[in-house]
């Protein structure tokens, strides 16, 4: 019985984080944080600024070191791996501050998303997908990224993430610096991508923004992570 349920469980769990601790300088940011994301889910981590949301996502994606704990992605232990290796396995991070290459064009930025061999095999297909998702990026493909508006930059950031051919897309506070209507459009796109089969782990300050689109939610407070049901969260925040 145990064996059986375990095999089912393993098949569906894409990402599993167990008791990780991370520091920012000397500051202990994450305390024994645990979470899991199943295949096809849209999972949110919600919390106020400075409580470790970004650090959590960066730790999972190999962009900041993990002091202790276990991270499993696609079944294998990935706690010691750096971002480039994880991107190759399909775990892709979209940064809150976009992290575009400002003196390169929209197209160059997108194509760099498909830098690794695995993603390059799907480069054409994914580029068409991004351009049909955001026709505006197709129009501005030869424009330098430093001249884009905030909304367009966020489109490129998400588009570049998709170009990496992710199996799990980790999106760090996409609403940051965006006007409310642009945030809404952005989150609708994320929701649509999820409905089309992409597994998503998203971090946001406010649960209200994510209303109705998420499967499960964790709250984070001073580096402590708790799974909460969405109704309770509403009251907490």
């Amino acid at each position: 019985m145990t064996m059986w349920s375990r095999s089912i469980w393993e098949r569906n769990t894409m990402l599993e984080v167990e008791g990780i601790n991370a520091l920012y300088g000397d500051f202990h940011v994450l305390h024994d944080a645990s979470l899991s994301v199943n295949k096809g889910e849209l999972v949110a981590v919600v919390g106020a600024n400075g409580h470790g949301k970004s650090t959590l996502l960066k730790a999972i994606c190999g962009l900041t070191p993990v002091k202790s704990g276990v991270i499993r992605f696609g079944g294998g232990d990935t706690a010691g791996l750096k971002a480039p290796q994880l991107v190759g396995q399909g775990l892709v991070y979209v940064a809150e501050d976009r992290r575009l290459f400002p003196d390169m064009t929209v197209l160059e930025n997108l194509l760099l998303g498909a830098y690794l061999p695995a993603a390059r095999a799907a480069e054409k297909h994914n580029l068409n997908r991004v351009f049909s998702l955001y026709p505006r990026l197709a129009e501005r493909r030869n424009q330098l990224c430093r001249s884009l508006s905030g909304g367009e930059a966020q489109m490129v950031a998400l588009g570049r993430g998709l170009m990496s051919d992710p199996t799990l897309l980790a999106i760090d506070e996409p609403s940051l610096g965006l006007a409310p209507n642009l945030t809404e459009t952005m989150l609708q796109t994320v929701s649509q991508l999820n409905k089309d089969g992409l597994t998503v782990l998203i971090v946001e300050q406010s649960l209200a923004l994510l209303n109705g689109m998420i499967d499960r939610v964790y709250s984070i407070e001073e580096g402590v992570l708790r799974e909460t049901d969405t109704d309770n969260m509403q009251e907490v925040l």
Partner: peptide, 23 residues
Amino acid sequence: TRYGQAVRAVSQDMQGANQVGIN
């Protein structure tokens, strides 16, 4: 070239380069 683009990417945003898989 691919590596040349990677050089430019690293010089423009190191974390961004890391994120797209550039060593």
